[in-house]
Write a protein that binds this DNA or RNA. Sequence first.
DNA 1: ATATAGTACCTCGCCTGTCAAGGTACTTCA
DNA 2: TGAAGTACCTTGACAGGCGAGGTACTATAT
Lengths: 112, 112
Amino acid sequence: MSIAGDLIRGHTDAIILARLLQGDSYGYEINKVISTLSSGRFELKEATLYTAFKRLEELGHIASYWGGSGPGARRRYYAITPSGREACYRLLSEWRETKEIMDKLLETEGTP
Amino acid sequence: MSIAGDLIRGHTDAIILARLLQGDSYGYEINKVISTLSSGRFELKEATLYTAFKRLEELGHIASYWGGSGPGARRRYYAITPSGREACYRLLSEWRETKEIMDKLLETEGTP
DNA sequence: ATATAGTACCTCGCCTGTCAAGGTACTTCA
DNA sequence: TGAAGTACCTTGACAGGCGAGGTACTATAT
């Protein structure tokens, strides 16, 4: 992984919620999608992912149900809740602000 | 502060190094500059700042010296070292990559 | 038949960075 | 005399990321 965990810290929830905004999904698949979207440059570790699911479910931002297993093991699907949507929108706008601020703070003159 | 610390986590070193790239400075001033540049929306807590200084100095990325105190208390100035410059450039490019990846991961369709 | 690899989930315990709270010491101005 | 500003520093708690380990099922190859 080329992007270290601490760089993403605090954004995992946003990533997961943004993915669930596109439709219900399950852990393994979300991880795959993240890996694909980032061209393999970033992947959530399983421990991180399931910790986040637990946290988000406790917060009421997502809800889970056991779904059709297809081929392979059983799957636990997650769905975003109304409060999850709100949280997601808030996190998205926080991300925009973070970018803006960071760009200002990292601005330097006459450097590569 | 409107941007929580965890959102910046992992980027503090980059911020500090980028500031020192502009010239030697001391803790109190760096904090002021960060607060100003971010229009007060973000400020490093003192504990975080001094922890970071210590870490960066141990890594050899910055060097410190006691400087003219002017009015008020004595100041410990920090200067960026060659290895600090390298680290800074690396962190800057990592930030660009993080932005790119995050934007892809947070991309959603038909949402505010 | 047996092994291997893929799908899919989960937990424990460590590590690291952030920060609230507390402290020191000096100067200036009311 | 006291408050407010400048300037530094440490301790301990806390939270999130993640390495390592585990479970269970299926499909394919040997």
